[in-house]
Design a protein around this nucleic acid. Structure first.
Ligand code: MN
Ligand code: MN
Ligand code: ZN
Ligand code: ZN
Lengths: 138, 138
DNA sequence: TACTAAAATGCAACAATGTTACAAAAATGA
DNA sequence: TCATTTTTGTAACATTGTTGCATTTTAGTA
């Protein structure tokens, strides 16, 4: 689906900055940190604006946060952009290669239910695997 | 076990800073961020030194990192300080309350095996649940 | 106890990440 | 085109984390 239509579909006004950022995710296909997106879009998009673009994309269900074991957060395209249904789940595990730094969604690996102490309510869950990807393993 | 002995047992020289920091974790019983520990120990310990104390504790297996969905990392006492065996696993889930901010170890909830793409090698895994703790749920 | 080598600390300087306030500019729909 | 709302750029600031280096402290030994 084209970037323009994706924005519209998620109630996001079409701006050049948002289009650039969205194209990065569509082309790169992996989770990206703020800094990585910034490197890709260059100075065309202001640093603060980029933070706000990422925020708005997350709020509108276009991106989801990916926990990073280092500092900082990464973002990745939400499932329902690949799949058709809009069941905003994104309840899957992620893998981060500790050598090349790439982070990928393991969309077929749903996060299993984890028992919690009595009285606790779970709203969200993040599962991050660390290791070596097929490129970096030897 | 007393703080002094714990340090010795983990090959860490006994210093006043390390004792203060270790006592924080022993007393508080939950995961703490650098900033939270800093607030607890006050100016007795330099900010940079505190970073290095936490690092050294992690390297020697006294603390383990806990992924935080916000910025920054937290640390928690390693299992084998509660249990007796030294099987440095710490392969358990964590729960962070989005209201009070407390993070606790779910030591009885081991992180299940997650299938990864062919050729990937998994070395570590982090599972963080977010929600409301029994105190904050209503 | 005094000496020594290794480890830990404090401090300064810096880099990266993230937030807020506010005025200017752009997008949308009428 | 006009009016309204949203988005953007800019500056200023806060937090988090790292590195280099001189000084102090620890722990073991003579
Ligand atoms: Mn994902
Ligand atoms: Mn834990
Ligand atoms: Zn890799
Ligand atoms: Zn709570």
């Amino acid at each position: 689906m084209q970037p323009e239509r994706l924005l519209k579909k998620h109630n996001l006004r079409k701006t050049s900055g948002r289009l650039s950022v969205l194209r990065c995710f569509l082309e790169y296909g992996k989770a990206l940190s703020h800094g990585e997106v910034q490197d890709l879009v260059g100075k065309k998009v202001d640093r603060v604006t980029l933070y706000r673009i990422l925020q708005s994309f997350e709020e509108k269900g276009l991106l989801h946060k990916v926990p990073d074991d280092q500092v900082s957060v990464k973002y990745a395209l939400c499932d329902h952009l690949h799949n058709v249904d809009h069941a905003h789940s994104d309840n899957h595990a992620h893998f981060k290669c500790n050598s090349c730094g790439d982070t990928v969604c393991l969309e077929e690996s749903a996060i299993p239910n984890i028992p919690t102490p009595k009285g606790f309510r779970v709203n969200e869950s993040f599962l991050l695997l660390g290791g070596l990807c097929d490129q970096c393993v030897r």
